[in-house]
């Protein structure tokens, strides 16, 4: 697909609804502004200076009139506000059975990691009809992943994960691009967004060269960077076990309880002093200068894959 349709096609149900919302709102806008344009033109002609006309008018103010033209457009706008806000809130309700794809942005490229370990740069293949969740991290500045066909964008902020989810329905080749100004080659930071039939996607996954799945790659990192030295039952160091950690509530020092989500795992690797699991010594060093966001995503995938099973079964 080429030209404008690669940008403007409605690829998802969400995109269609955003367009419907926008177009209905444009109609409202038009109906509110048209009287102003028409009346100004009519008045300028009819009451231009020197032209005879009936100019008797009783008053120079009318509180009810003024209140009504202040309140009625506002009330109409509120109706649209409710619609738009519900649509927006949907973006925050992540589907449970989604395909999770990791995204790392850096000046000036997009890197995507599929759960099976397939990696692509500036190109994202997704299956049609299946919910996809993108977990996005930035290696340097703020970027913004923008897929116009989905009517979606989300800033990718260094220091945290942001997420975006969608269900693309219409197979085809579309655009993805960076919307937040990120430096010299900002306008070249983009590529193709490929929506494929499920079968084609499965085929594509097979044909793409893979070292190992993300979690397995993470397991390798887990050993090479010495994480296993402390976070294993046999270790002499008193460090919390990571089995079944993901999704569990963790009591942390200071009495708070937090859920061990991706962000928690990421922060524990890069900013280990921020949230110490209660009852453990503060001995974990930071890996901020050692690991890039791509490696961290792999480690997170590995730790997420750890079920609450005895340690040695996995060795």
């Amino acid at each position: 697909m080429d030209g404008l349709s690669a940008w403007a096609s409605e690829i998802s149900a969400h995109a269609a609804e955003v367009d419907l919302l926008a177009m209905s709102f444009f109609l409202l806008v038009l109906s509110l502004s048209a009287p102003v344009f028409i009346l100004m033109a009519v008045f300028a002609v009819r009451y231009r200076r020197g032209k005879p006309a009936d100019r008797v008018h009783p008053i120079d103010r009318n509180v009810w009139l003024e209140v009504s033209w202040a309140i009625i457009p506002f009330a109409l706008a509120i109706a649209f506000y409710i619609w738009a806000t519900r649509l927006y809130a949907n973006l925050y309700e992540l589907p449970a059975d989604a395909l999770e794809i990791g995204v790392v942005a850096k000046q000036w490229m997009w890197k995507f990691q599929h759960p099976g370990g397939q990696r692509e740069i500036d190109e994202l293949h997704v299956p049609a009809g299946q919910p996809v969740v993108l977990t996005m991290a930035s290696q340097d500045v703020i970027h913004s992943l923008y897929i116009p066909g989905l009517r979606l964008k989300r800033d990718v902020v260094p220091g945290r994960y942001t997420r975006m989810w969608f269900t693309a329905d219409k197979p085809g080749v579309y655009r993805l691009t960076c919307a937040e100004f990120c430096g010299a080659d900002h306008s070249m930071m983009g590529g193709r967004f490929v929506v494929m039939q499920q079968a084609d996607y499965a085929l594509w996954l097979e044909q793409t060269e893979v070292d190992a799945s993300l979690a397995v790659q993470g397991a390798v990192l887990f050993r090479t960077y010495g994480c296993s030295g402390c976070h294993s039952p046999g270790a002499t160091v008193h460090a919390p076990s990571l089995d079944g950690l993901y999704g569990r509530p963790v009591p942390i020092e200071g009495g708070q309880i937090v859920t061990a989500d991706e962000q928690y795992i990421r922060d524990s690797i890069l900013l280990p002093r921020q949230h110490i699991a209660a009852g453990y010594p503060r001995i974990m060093p930071t890996f901020a200068n050692v690991l890039g966001e791509e490696e961290v995503l792999k480690l997170v995938a590995y730790i997420k894959s750890l079920r609450a099973a005895p340690w040695k079964d996995r060795q």
Binding site: Y47, E66, A70, I71
Partner: peptide, 20 residues
């Protein structure tokens, strides 16, 4: 939008029966 709308419509109403 409320105060901005007031201004726009009031300007238009000012032109009504003026000597423009």
């Amino acid at each position: 939008a409320v105060p901005s709308g007031i201004k726009i419509y009031n300007w238009t109403a000012t032109l009504y029966k003026g000597h423009i």
